[in-house]
Simulated scan of single mutants.
Amino acid sequence: MELAKRIVNGDRRAAARAITMIENDSPDRQKLLKALHPNTGNAYLVGITGSPGAGKSTLTDQLLFWLRKQGLQVGVIAVDPTSPFTGGAILGDRIRMTGHSLDPGVFIRSMGTRGSLGGLARATKEAVRVLDAYGSDVILIETVGVGQSELDIMHVADTTVVVLNPTAGDHIQTMKAGIMEIADVFAINKADLPGADKTEREVNNMLDLLHDLDWRPPVVRTTSRDPATFRTLWEACSRHREYLVQSGHWGRRRRQRWQDEILAIAEQTLSRRIRQSIAAHPDWPQLLREVESGEKDPYQVADLVLEWYNTTISRP
């Protein structure tokens, strides 16, 4: 596709248009992603996650300044919550990062979750692929404020930074949450506030209880009042990247992500085809009535549905 060629050649408008196509589920979306695929896999993906109010957007903004000083091309996918009432989203992350809006080495895209519950938008993975083909050296993926179970970022990022702050409340309870278990790096943001020592001590105490760690997540402090702290954060991320490469986890993680994505695509395609199959079958309404009346159970009917589908695909 001509659009894919323009993206690979660094056309900013083409990349923006491609992500819009992906978000709107354009009929040409799949062709575009196929054309881009040979030019992907080069960017370093860093996830930035944490509870609401931890300062993820400010941290991302400050980290951007540091990465640009290193001459790196940076892409940012910032996910904001979508209203369940209006369907709209306040894309505040783009507003917070206006200092980079005129920088040709930075591409920022805000995305609404559109009902997705994992802390990311459904189109996030594909948008990341566009920015990868576009030429980004590093892609920062900032999740919507997450809780215990919204952990999709661990299946997308190479390195996951969990952002905490000294005023988070009951840190011991927070550490029981699943989000603490996905961290490759801990960043105590707003570290100039009282309580940073206590938070760092509690995180390290938690890590001390985990004796079988191949990688012990470093705990770093960041504050917008001291830009040098974001250099320390980036150094911690870089050490994790080196660990992944040297241990072989880099390749294994990426292969696992491809496997998960291939299976997800196959499941979605199969589900769509089965739905089309039962919608066209004359016995389907009667079977639903028999399940409702108790004459048949859902498992029996599911077996019949699979038989219908298998018969359909086995026809010459």
Rank of each mutant, 00 (worst) to 15 (best):
T199D: 08
M175R: 10
M154P: 00
Y134C: 03
A191S: 09
R114V: 06
E202Y: 06
S101Q: 12
E150G: 06
L117V: 14
E150D: 08
R201F: 02
D192Q: 13
K190E: 02
G119W: 00
K198R: 14
H100E: 12
A127Q: 00
G105F: 11
K198M: 06
M175Q: 05
A177G: 15
N205E: 11
I139W: 02
F107M: 09
D103E: 14
M175Y: 14
V163I: 10
L151P: 00
P194M: 14
L164F: 10
V185C: 01
V144D: 01
E126W: 02
S101K: 04
L207V: 15
I188V: 09
R114K: 07
H155E: 06
G115T: 02
V162F: 08
I188P: 00
A177E: 13
N205G: 07
T167V: 09
V130R: 03
T160Q: 03
L151F: 01
L210N: 10
D158A: 15
A183I: 04
P166W: 07
A191E: 01
V128R: 06
L207W: 03
K176Y: 07
P166F: 10
A187L: 08
H155L: 12
T143L: 01
M206S: 11
L164T: 11
K190W: 11
Y134G: 04
A177Q: 12
D212V: 03
V156Q: 12
K176H: 12
L193A: 11
R114Y: 03
D103K: 00
G195N: 12
R129T: 06
H211A: 14
I172Y: 05
G99V: 09
L117K: 06
L193H: 12
L209G: 15
L193F: 11
I108P: 02
A127M: 05
A121L: 04
D212M: 10
G195L: 13
H171L: 14
T174G: 11
